[in-house]
Write a protein that binds this DNA or RNA. Sequence first.
DNA 1: TTCAAAAAATGACTTAGAGTCAGTATGGGA
DNA 2: TCCCATACTGACTCTAAGTCATTTTTTGAA
Lengths: 219, 219
Amino acid sequence: MGIAERKEREKEYKRALILESAEKVILKKGLDHLNMDEVAEEAEVSKGSLYLYFKNKNDLVLGICHKASSMLNNDFARVLAKDIPGLKMVYELGNVFMNFVKERPEFFRAMKFLDNMNVTGEETESEYLNMCSQNRQEGFRVMVRAIQIGMQDGSIKTEYQPEELALLLWSTSHGVVSIAYMHEHNESFNLLDRIGISQEQMFQSYMKIIGNGIAKTDD
Amino acid sequence: MGIAERKEREKEYKRALILESAEKVILKKGLDHLNMDEVAEEAEVSKGSLYLYFKNKNDLVLGICHKASSMLNNDFARVLAKDIPGLKMVYELGNVFMNFVKERPEFFRAMKFLDNMNVTGEETESEYLNMCSQNRQEGFRVMVRAIQIGMQDGSIKTEYQPEELALLLWSTSHGVVSIAYMHEHNESFNLLDRIGISQEQMFQSYMKIIGNGIAKTDD
DNA sequence: TTCAAAAAATGACTTAGAGTCAGTATGGGA
DNA sequence: TCCCATACTGACTCTAAGTCATTTTTTGAA
């Protein structure tokens, strides 16, 4: 009785198709101008059908956010698989994050959407919301893992808890790449230009200061 | 011929009144559920009138954002006026920022609105947008100033450019307080709970690591 | 005080876009 | 071939932003 499974597969396939269409619309018009009618048209599907596959627009965007965080996590995983010192891994994770923001700004934006939405009290219930949280969790664990590796191989100080340190790197790097994103995509943000520091310089100094803060010094 | 000036004053007064009404609605319903009809009702003014004082809803929210950043800048200025070492000022600026987010979350949210909006290419033209940028700039200058003071009084390392350091503190602290905000106001964000680190602990470690990074060591 | 022109204010209307649902089409099983 | 369940449709409703022809108020000159 493979029918139920086939149906299930087809449903997943169509969901993916709709997500791809949404992606196209987003890349064409930007997340802010995403609208369901256009997604329906792009996916060659009726508007009503969208709502068979996604609870609402939020849910659809969370679908994109999930894709985005999965991509980022993939990149992260690749760093973790390398045979390099933990400290080096931390650097590379930072680079990967920064590149992600530069190469796939609309996906980063979708991830920010997750951060900004769902202020306590809304009806939540979204499959994708959980998957997104899951992915965030997973990305964070990678950071923790890299730090643990660094502590074991002696490249990172052991005076902090790995989770504590990971949390700081996580949150501060978020801040830094957000600024970089704004610098590129928000006309009204011109701080970097005014003080004459480039995005790259900013990121370099960040990495350097982080390095100073967490690297084990030979004593 | 004081009529023009009187009109101008009245106009400003009414604008302020509308902003206060918007504020009330926001505090009652949250920024996401702000709507123009309700603001009009609260301000005892017709909907059409709102658009005589604000170009559009965005502009109104930017008005709130401007108020928010002005309040924050005020708090900042008070720190700068103290007779304490620059390093201490930097700490206190951090505390002030964190408190602001905790005490006035909806205002912080309005400030984030500025960060997230206006992705390049929109019709910009808003008085308030410029004023908000201005305020951001000003807040940043306070940070630079505190660092310069610290460099002069010997409490902060002189190996970085003040602007460079200010930029890092600015961006990383943004990241950290954003996480704190999410922890409080975004149900789907449960990272802190999972790893068992409180907002306060996170902020303490952040301050500590910053301190280690920038404090001048007696050598 | 009167009145016409200018300025300010109004709220019914238009528009955009999310979300719904009664009705239609399709495909599997008897 | 027919029936039922499931998938799909698009015209419709609803909400909220934004507009504008009309009305009200204010101003200043006669």
